[in-house]
Design a protein around this nucleic acid. Structure first.
Lengths: 237, 237
DNA sequence: GGATCGTAATGAGGGCTATTCAACAATGCT
DNA sequence: AGCATTGTTGAATAGCCCTCATTACGATCC
């Protein structure tokens, strides 16, 4: 139309674009297709077509399909967690916990196709830890850890739990709770599920601890008593 | 070599086999390749080659690659859970729970490649519920549910939790606990992890803490103290 | 034990992929 | 205007799953 473009073959317009624009177009097209057809039905040719380019051009900007789809997932994940507030602004341990869980559930519900992609394709990859997804999960987990640490310090929670296990319980339960939905077998209410999960976790941490260390100390003292008594008895006779 | 076989082209032997034998050969080959290369690297041609047949023959016995791999996963899963004992034979709620969790972890550790396949490929499928995997998980979950119901009835557990949530917590935590391992980033000890998970779940549900082995040991020591005192007293008189 | 026939097995190729690359052409610079 | 740079093309490649017409095995019958 304007200068800088020319018709090629039949009604095809070739335009040179800046990297930023092209990359954005490709990512937008890819994300749309994933959202519509699921990540399994994505083809590079369809992405190219929707982005108004040819397959080969995709490979100027992305090493391969895998890297492209990973970028799609990362971008979406970053955006989805951009509005995550710092839970120090929320009052009450239970409310903090509930908010974090709710936010994850909300995110999954908002983007089921890409969520599935992340769970089934991104997380299993050996280089998952170099991923923006991992990074965000890390920061998210840090909030949970802090929340628990604080509650323990204040005496609200009485148990300590390895951070790893804490993370696995929270994420694991959240993810597993959404599989029915992700499989397309009905809906779920993030607020409701978040309430349930938070309640169980909260309760689990509030219970009173077994005071086994105290028992050990007491028995130690008893043993010393016994030893003294035994020695006394031996010296006497 | 013998009657019923003939050389074709160069040193190829064509033999007609019963369905059972062929299916078994194909499944065996497929399972081996999955175990060796992971499910992502599996090709029908490689399966055929290892089974001593040609690609086309595979499709006489399996509708498509997907169905074949599903069968591999199902068979493996069935075998893996064949030795699952009925937990009514195990004494103590905590021990039952711990056993069930441990068994799952053990299974995952024994077959990481197929476990990954089940988690990332089988479970997301729309027809997952028609799967033997689903069926076994159902029975497994039933044991957990019974265990909890019984503990609540006896007063050992004070809280009730929706079955769905219970299942999601147990499975979710188990699975998430193994992702590092499944990604090839190190090992894990099923017994240790099972202990941790069971402890948290148990504590979360129970009014009282679990009376683990430490108490037994402490009592042992107390008994020894008593013995010493008794012996001393006896020697004195 | 030879002919018959249902069917197991073949292997070539079709259709669809992702990916590469030499040639081309639009743009910015001088 | 000419040139270098580099975005874009489109055809070609290789590999995959899957189909199907053809081949020939081997059980059955006479």
């Amino acid at each position: 139309m304007t200068t800088g473009t020319v018709r090629k073959r039949r009604n095809r317009v070739v335009t040179r674009q800046s990297q930023d624009v092209r990359v954005a177009d490709i990512l937008k097209a890819a994300r749309e297709i994933v959202a519509e057809n699921g990540y399994e039905g994505v083809t590079v040719s369809e992405i190219a077509e929707r982005a108004g380019i040819v397959e080969g051009t995709v490979y100027r900007y992305f090493k391969n399909k895998e890297e492209l789809l990973l970028k799609v997932a990362e971008d979406w994940f970053v955006e989805s967690f951009a509005d995550l507030v710092d839970v120090s602004a929320i009052s009450g341990t239970y409310n903090k916990l509930r908010y974090l869980i709710w936010h994850s559930l909300k995110t999954i519900k908002a983007g089921p196709a890409i969520s599935r992609f992340i769970m089934t394709e991104v997380r299993p990859k050996p280089d998952y830890k170099e991923t923006a997804v991992f990074d965000i999960n890390r920061r998210y987990t840090a909030q949970i850890r802090n929340l628990f640490a604080e509650a323990i310090r204040s005496g609200e929670f009485s148990h300590d739990v390895p951070e790893r296990l804490l993370r696995d319980m929270v994420f694991g339960t959240i993810e597993h709770s959404t599989w029915r939905f992700l499989r397309g077998e009905g809906d779920f209410d993030p607020a409701e599920i978040a309430d349930e999960i938070a309640a169980v976790l909260y309760r689990g941490m509030s219970a009173k601890p077994p005071e086994d260390d105290k028992f050990s100390l007491l028995v130690d003292r008893l043993e010393k008593v016994a030893d003294r008594l035994a020695q006394d008895a031996a010296g006497k006779s």
